[in-house]
Nucleic acid binder design. Structure first.
Length: 314
DNA sequence: AAGACGAAAGTGGTTGA
DNA sequence: TCAACAACTTTCGTCTT
């Protein structure tokens, strides 16, 4: 053990200036050349735990690290600064001090200009996510894509809001928890045209796979928004399955198909909602529900069933 | 009065030349 | 780039309950 330590000390020679005057700063854990300020990057951080825990309480008490790194903070939750305290200054040779000050200044400027865009975007994203009540996973994923988009220079010429809106739309869709464009627009207050354009562009550039939205992915959320029971939900899904099998939903707006299925299900189960109510929640018109309703009912041969139930309930 | 129905005209987006 | 096109919306008059 003692031998090992000695060996390590012997090897420490500053590659920058050749000086052997190396100190170990206990507050930062860095190994620094006292002459020129060179910081050794090899083996300076021990990434393993230096403690053990035998239950979860000990685990949380002994853990000294912070939150995990995250894409939803502009610098992954880790901020680097060039120290400006007296302590740091003393570690730098007087002849290098002026240079050190300049470095500090430029470093700050660099971080600001590069990150201003990102940090603004991420706070906007935070707002949108909480407005729409999206999960942590989705939030992270959007942030990750945004990082990617910025790195590829895809945000140029588009408003930050539009990009956030488009990515939100894309990720919700990808995760099988789609929001309608209308909902997104309401949360982001960006023009529909803008969002659509940004969406198509980003989807192409980031190679997001765009699949048509299956109508059933709207059912659970909208059913609960309408205060309908699980029974209605199950019925609506059952109807949609048949509809898809017959290829009735091809080319039709998924919300319209979902709306009709929910409408039919609500009647069949006996928790009727008016067309108006459903149309409002799904963001479509009654006319569309009626059109889908007619198609579905006739093709599935359940017109009579619906009519009967309708009579009973009025 | 409220809901459902359907015709007709208008709108925004996709497609194919 | 443009026109054709299908899906969907808006609007409105009518019918039913």
């Amino acid at each position: 053990m003692a031998k090992k330590e000695e060996k390590m000390k012997k090897e420490l020679v500053c590659p920058e200036c050749g000086s052997k005057d190396i100190i170990n700063d206990p507050t930062s854990g860095e190994t620094i050349c006292k002459k020129c300020g060179y910081v050794f990057t090899d083996n300076i951080i021990d990434l393993t735990q230096d403690w053990r825990a035998f239950d979860s309480e000990q685990m949380s008490r002994r853990a000294r690290t912070g939150a995990p790194i995250t894409y939803s903070k502009h610098d992954l939750g880790l901020t680097t600064e060039i120290g400006k305290g007296i302590l740091e200054l003393h570690k730098v040779a007087p002849s290098k001090r002026a240079q050190y000050y300049r470095m500090t200044k430029w470093h700050k400027r660099l971080i600001r200009s590069k990150d201003r865009n990102l940090s603004y975007a991420l706070s906007e994203l935070q707002r949108v996510v909480s407005y729409l009540g999206l999960s942590r996973v989705i939030h992270e994923k959007i942030a990750k894509y945004y990082n990617e988009a910025v790195n590829k220079g895809l945000v140029r010429g588009r408003s930050i809001e539009a990009v956030i809106a488009a990515l939100t739309y894309a990720v919700c869709r990808e995760m099988g928890n789609p929001r309608t464009l209308e909902e997104i627009i309401e949360a982001c207050n960006v023009e529909k045209r803008e969002v659509g354009r940004a969406y198509r562009y980003l989807a192409r550039e980031l190679k997001l796979r765009i699949l048509p939205i299956p109508p059933e992915s709207f059912v659970p959320r909208f059913c609960s928004m309408l205060g309908l029971s699980d029974k209605v939900q199950a019925k609506a899904l059952e109807i949609l399955k048949k509809v898809e099998k017959k290829g009735l939903s091809a080319g039709k707006g998924p919300t319209g198909v979902a709306a009709a299925a929910i409408y039919i299900a609500s009647i069949l189960v006996g928790e009727r909602r008016t067309q108006r109510e459903i149309a409002d929640v799904l963001g479509i018109t009654e006319v569309t529900i009626r059109n889908r309703l007619k198609e579905i009912a006739s093709k599935l041969g359940i017109e009579k069933e619906i009519e009967e139930k309708e009579m009973k309930q009025s």
